[in-house]
């Protein structure tokens, strides 16, 4: 059972765990340059690492993959329910309606779950390598599973999990993003580029170079503005015009080889930023603020108490969830962040 922690800047009910005063101080100081602040800290318990997070479409629940379990948390950070699967869960994605997708590393499977209540609906075997991530394109209603080990991306039918096609891709596949119009983008850390996949044919349709970017691992997309946000291992975020494959902006961010990105319009609630991308993977959170489709800027930075292993953004709830990996002297935890005064109305 998870415990609920509360940051000093929080105003929610719940117990404040002892021994976190120093850490809280760091978070508070850093929050002054960040659009978000930590409102709540949730201990994961044990040595379990959260490998994936997904915000539920109802804005009331967030799902965390911890070892072989999927745990749900309500909007107060309280553990609500959990389901145990047949292996370590390496990816989560919210689907349409009450559907949640999980991928299990070994034996490689896609698990389709219902969330009211949380339960397994069906499970299908994956044959293109151990899955490393899952993406649901809610606009195009397309489901993709990436396998870093299998150098592949598989497209599956979202309702049944039936395999529709497999794209084989050399290199080191990392985060995926889709444009809602049948194109999938995959960060390829080994090739310092983005692979572009035609979802219809599940075939590589091109490669987008990323000038000045080394080991890109994080990727998010604004399907309306047709912008790709790329997190690079050498401390840069690139913003790419997806239509032209043209990088038009490079911004400094943290250095990490395992970045995760999330973009949303009004990510912190309806009166906050017009659009924003959050970047995590190391011991910092970076934000990129969108002012217009051609105008972006660094939106602040927040120091974190540990290395981020997963990230989920819930615009309807105005919440950002981060999973902090367990360290030698501390267990894993979840951070719930909300808008600070830096992320206020524009």
């Amino acid at each position: 059972m998870s415990k609920v922690r509360r940051g000093a800047t929080g105003n929610r009910r719940g117990a404040v765990l002892a021994g976190l005063a120093a850490l809280t101080g760091v978070l508070s100081a850093s929050a002054s340059t960040s659009p978000v602040q930590v409102l709540q800290r949730v201990a994961v318990g044990g040595t379990g690492q959260v490998r994936a997070l997904a915000a539920g479409p109802d804005a009331k629940h967030v799902y965390a993959a911890v070892g072989e379990e999927i745990r749900s948390f309500d909007d107060r950070g309280r553990a609500a329910s959990n389901v145990k699967l047949s292996g370590v869960v390496t990816g989560l994605a919210a689907g349409a309606g009450d559907t949640l997708y999980a991928v299990v590393k070994a034996p490689a499977r896609l698990v389709i779950l219902g969330v009211r209540p949380l339960h397994v609906v069906t499970s299908v075997a994956l044959h293109a390598g151990a899955p490393s991530g899952v993406l649901f394109d809610s606009i195009a209603n397309q489901l993709f599973v990436a396998s870093r080990a299998g150098h592949s991306v598989t497209r599956l039918e979202p309702r049944t999990g039936k395999r529709l096609g497999v794209a084989r891709m050399p290199g080191m596949l990392a985060q995926m993003a889709a444009n809602g119009r049948g194109t999938l983008y995959v960060a390829n850390s080994a090739r310092d580029s983005l692979d572009v996949v035609s979802a219809d044919k599940m075939a590589l349709s091109g490669e987008i170079p990323l000038p000045g970017c080394r080991a890109p691992s994080g990727l998010a997309m604004d399907p309306m503005g047709r912008r790709l946000f790329v997190g690079c291992g050498n401390g840069h975020a690139l913003i790419v015009d997806a239509d032209l494959g043209f990088t038009f902006l490079k911004l400094p961010i943290q250095q990490s080889d395992a970045l995760q990105l999330a973009f949303a319009f009004h990510p912190l609630g309806p009166s906050g930023w017009k659009g924003g991308t959050f970047i995590a993977g190391g011991e910092e959170l970076d934000a990129i603020r969108m002012y217009a489709f051609v105008h972006y800027a660094n939106g602040g930075k927040l120091a974190l108490p540990g290395t981020v292993s997963a990230l989920a953004l819930s615009p309807p709830a105005g919440e950002l969830w981060l999973a902090i990996a367990p360290a030698a002297d501390a267990g894993g935890e979840l951070l719930v962040l909300r808008r600070s005064d830096k992320g206020g109305a524009q």
């Binding site: 091109g206 239509d243 032209l244 494959g245 043209f246 490079k250």
Partner: peptide
């Protein structure tokens, strides 16, 4: 200079 136009990926076809 960095905004000199270019096209990559599928659009380059």
């Amino acid at each position: 200079f960095h905004l000199l136009t270019a096209v990559h990926g599928p659009a380059a076809m």
